Structures are given as C-alpha cells and as structure tokens.
Amino acid sequence: METDTDGFDKALARARSGDEAGFLVLWEALHPRLLRYLQVLGCDDVDDVASETWLQAVRDLHRFKKGGADEFRAWLFTIGRHRAVDEARSRTRYRDKILTTGQASPPQTVHFNPVEDEVLAGLSTRQAVALVAGLSRDQAEVVALRIIAGLDTEAVARILRKSPGAVRVALHRGLRTLSEDPRIRDIEKVEQ
C-alpha cells in the first residue's frame, strides 16, 4: 500500500528529472500551505512572494539532492521565508523613499496570521486569520510552520535559527493562547 509520503517522494523524483506532472503534484500539495505561511509573515503580496518562491525552487531543484518529502517541504519553506524577508526589506526601502521625497503617504499594511490546528477545527480561514492576529509574530510563525506547513520541530528550528526547545515553547504558548480565546470557547460550545 502506497502512503502519501511515498507518492510525494515519487513526484519529487519525477520533478527532479524534469517531469512537469511530478512538479504539479508538489505544487498542489504545498502551495496552499505556502500561501498561508507567507500570510503569517505579513507579506503584502502573498501571491508574488509565493511565485518567486516556486520560481527559485524550480530553478534550484537540481541542487536539492538529499531527502524526501519532509526535507523538500523544509527547503521550500526556507526559500519562502527568505523571499518574504526580501519583500519586507524592499517594501521598507520603498516606503522610506516615498517618505523622504514627501510625494505620498505609505500604503496601509494589513497583516494576516492564519493557522490550522485542532484548536481551530471548524473555523474558516478568515476566522483563523482573525484569531492568530492576536499572537506574537514569533508564536504565529512557529504555529504556521508546525501546523500549516507540517514541518517537524527540528526543521522549524533550522528555518528560524532557534533551538528546538524555543520552538516547542513558542508553539505551546501560541496554541495555549488560541485555546483560551473566548471565540474558540464559543465555537466549542456550539459544536457540543
């Protein structure tokens, strides 16, 4: 019996050899999670950053030699994080340039922080975004990488350059904060 991981690993092998259908399997499996993760990071244009992430992944896929599904997912989300940081720097430079020239006011930025977890079962993505908006950036990013991206603690620690213990603490605190939110309690009452 073939598992999801086996199917992903086969698609990854096909994508490495240039098979578009194999790459499509990777994209369909990971693109929605990547978009949500980039929203957690506060990207202004999530679709553009995701596109840049996938372009770099396609361009550098020949360099990804070791590992299967888990390692590829960690590699992709690391690229996404780097592209998000680049976008934030570019946005800051652009806003600074506008402010120094006095031509216009900076655009308003809306930060969305979605997460999917058993705490949020039954919630729409929009409701989840509203709930996670109350988390600290650190907690939101850890929750997104662990829950949305499905990465293990060690992979999240490497991406964020934190210790595994710090990742576990941030995850625990973020999920505890979400579970104590009265809006979650209201949903739990309705479901019972």
Rank of each mutant, 00 (worst) to 15 (best):
L99H: 01
L171E: 09
D96K: 14
V85D: 08
S136D: 06
C43F: 07
D138T: 03
F64Y: 07
V40R: 06
A128W: 08
R126Q: 13
F77L: 11
L151T: 00
L61E: 00
R83H: 04
V40K: 05
Q39W: 09
G150H: 04
Y94L: 04
I148A: 11
R91W: 07
V110K: 15
P114E: 06
A144W: 02
R63S: 12
S51T: 14
L35S: 01
V49Q: 02
A50Y: 10
R63E: 13
A144T: 00
A74S: 03
P164A: 04
L145Y: 01
R73Q: 05
K65H: 06
A155G: 01
A128P: 01
H111M: 09
R95M: 09
Q108H: 13
D44R: 15
P164V: 09
I147L: 13
V115E: 07
H172E: 06
L55M: 13
A144L: 14
A133Q: 14
V85T: 12
K97D: 10
E52I: 14
K65A: 10
R36C: 14
T78C: 14
D86V: 13
H172I: 03
D117K: 08
K97W: 15
P164E: 01
E154C: 05
D96C: 09
A50W: 06
A144S: 10
R158G: 00
V46L: 15
S163Y: 07
T78Y: 09
R168M: 05
C43K: 01
T78G: 11
T109I: 15
D45H: 11
V115K: 04
K66I: 04
A149D: 00
R168L: 12
L160C: 02
V132W: 15
Q39E: 15
V156N: 01
D44E: 12
G122T: 00
R59A: 09
R173S: 03
L151R: 02
H82R: 10
S90M: 05
R89T: 01
A104D: 13
P106R: 13
A144R: 06
D70C: 09
A84K: 01
V85E: 07
L145F: 02
R168Q: 03
H62K: 07
R137F: 07
E116Q: 06
V129Y: 03
N113F: 12
P106I: 09
A50K: 04
R137T: 05
E154D: 08
T125R: 14
R73N: 00
D138R: 13
R173G: 02
F77M: 10
G68P: 09
L145T: 00
I159F: 00
S124M: 10
R73W: 06
P107A: 15
P107N: 05
E52C: 13
V119K: 09
D86C: 01
R33M: 10
A157C: 07
E87H: 15
R146G: 00
V169W: 11
I159R: 00
Q103S: 09
Q103F: 15
D117A: 04
D44Y: 06
V46S: 05
F77Q: 00
S90D: 07
D152Q: 06
R168S: 08
D60W: 13
I79F: 12
L171P: 00
S51M: 14
R158N: 06
T92Y: 07
R36M: 09
E71A: 11
E154Y: 05
T101W: 10
Q56W: 14
T153F: 10
A170W: 04
R63G: 13
